[in-house]
C-alpha cells in the first residue's frame, strides 16, 4: 500500500519536473469544471432554453390534433403526429368570409418582397455610390435628412403618403406598397452602400476615371463586381424586414393584397368560430419560415447586416 502511494507521488513528482523543464506553454490551463464555468455555461444554457422554448412549443402544437391539445400540456411532444393543421393553415383557414388559407398571403408577400428588394437595393446602391464617389454640393444635407428621417415614427408620415398614393392611383395596390418599402428602406441601405463604397480604395476609382470610364461604367464594371458581399447583406436585411412588415401592409393594401403577416394576424385573432390552436400555430410557423430560413442559411452575414444597420457611420 505504501509502495503504491510512493509510486504515485514519485510519478507525480517526475511529471512536475518534466513540466518545469519544458516551461509553461500558453495560458494557465483552467479546470473544465470550476464554479466560474458552471455559472457561465449554466446561465447560457438556461437562457438558451428560454429562447428555444417558443420555437419548440410552436412546432409541437402545430403537429398535434385538437383533442390532444385540450387534454395535454403544451410542452409535451405529440403522441400522434398529424400534418392536417399545416394543410388547413395553408389552404383552408378563414379570414372573414374568405377561406383560402394563408397561401394567398404567402404569394402576396412574395409579390411584394421580390420587387421591393430589387428596386430598393438598385436605387440605394447607385445612390450610395454617388454619395461616396461623386459628391456634389448639397448631397450631404439630403443624406443627413434621410438618416434623421429613419428615426421619425412611421405614424407621422402614414397619412400624407396615403394621400400621395391615392393621387397617383396606387393606393391599395401592390405597386404602392413596393414604393413605400423602397422609401423606408432607403436610409439604412443608402448608409450601408455609402459606407461600403467609401471603404474601397480610392485608387481604383481614380484609375478607372483616368481610363475614361464614366459614372455608370465605373458602377457596373468596377463597383458592382467588387461589392457582392454587401449586396447579399442588403438583401438579407430587406427580405427579412419586408417579409416581417405589418404596418405598411395593413395601411397601404386592400384585403385581397394583404401580406402574410397581416393575414396571419387576422386568422389567429379572429373572434368568430372555434379556436383551432394547432392551425394557428402552423400558420405562425409558416409565416416565420421564410425569415428563419434566410437567417439560418445566411449565418454570419445576417449578423453583419444588422451590425451595419445598427452602427451608424
Amino acid at each position: 500500500m505504501t509502495d503504491t502511494a510512493l509510486d504515485i507521488r514519485a510519478s507525480a513528482g517526475s511529471q512536475a519536473r518534466a513540466e518545469a523543464l519544458t516551461g509553461p506553454n500558453g495560458p494557465k490551463p483552467r479546470p473544465i469544471i470550476s464554479p466560474r464555468n458552471i455559472m457561465i455555461y449554466g446561465t447560457l444554457f438556461v437562457v438558451s432554453v428560454y429562447y428555444l422554448l417558443p420555437l419548440y412549443v410552436m412546432i409541437m402544437t402545430s403537429v398535434k390534433g385538437m383533442p390532444e391539445i385540450r387534454m395535454g400540456n403544451i410542452f409535451s411532444p405529440p403522441l400522434e403526429i398529424t400534418f392536417q393543421p399545416w394543410v388547413k393553415a395553408w389552404a383552408e383557414a378563414c379570414t372573414g368570409l374568405n377561406c383560402e388559407g394563408l397561401s394567398r398571403g404567402f404569394w402576396n408577400s412574395v409579390r411584394i418582397t421580390i420587387p421591393s428588394v430589387i428596386v430598393s437595393i438598385a436605387i440605394a446602391s447607385v445612390n450610395g455610390y454617388a454619395l461616396a464617389n461623386w459628391r456634389f454640393k448639397g448631397a450631404n444635407i439630403f443624406f443627413t435628412i434621410l438618416i434623421f428621417g429613419a428615426f421619425v415614427p412611421y405614424q407621422v408620415m402614414l397619412y400624407p403618403i396615403v394621400i400621395l398614393l391615392r393621387e397617383a392611383g396606387l393606393y391599395g395596390s401592390l405597386t404602392g406598397l413596393v414604393i413605400v418599402h423602397t422609401i423606408f428602406g432607403m436610409p439604412i441601405l443608402t448608409l450601408l452602400f455609402r459606407n461600403y463604397f467609401s471603404s474601397l480604395p480610392e485608387e481604383l476609382f481614380k484609375a478607372a476615371r483616368v481610363d475614361g470610364a464614366g459614372f455608370w461604367g465605373i458602377y457596373f464594371k468596377i463597383m458592382l463586381p467588387m461589392s457582392l458581399p454587401i449586396f447579399v447583406v442588403a438583401m438579407i436585411l430587406q427580405i427579412t424586414g419586408i417579409w416581417n412588415d405589418f404596418l405598411f401592409g395593413v395601411v397601404y393594401t386592400r384585403p385581397e393584397n394583404y401580406p402574410m403577416t397581416v393575414q396571419l394576424n387576422n386568422i389567429v385573432n379572429s373572434v368568430q368560430g372555434v379556436k383551432e390552436y394547432n392551425v394557428n400555430m402552423a400558420a405562425t410557423v409558416l409565416t416565420g419560415l421564410v425569415p428563419l430560413i434566410v437567417y439560418f442559411v445566411s449565418g454570419k452575414l445576417f449578423v453583419r447586416g444588422i451590425a451595419a444597420g445598427a452602427v451608424k457611420g
Binding site: Y51, L53, P54, L55, V57, M58, T61, I74, T240, W243, N244, D245, F246, T261, L264, N265, V268, Y277, N280, M281, T284, T287, G288, P291, L292, V294, Y295, F296, F302, V303, I306
Partner: peptide, 18 residues
C-alpha cells in the same frame, strides 16, 4: 439571435399561446 429574424406578429402570437 434567431427571434430577431421573426416578425413581431409571429412573436406576439407565440407568446399569446404560451
Amino acid at each position: 439571435l434567431y427571434p430577431f429574424a421573426l416578425s413581431f406578429i409571429v412573436t406576439g402570437l407565440v407568446w399569446q399561446w404560451i
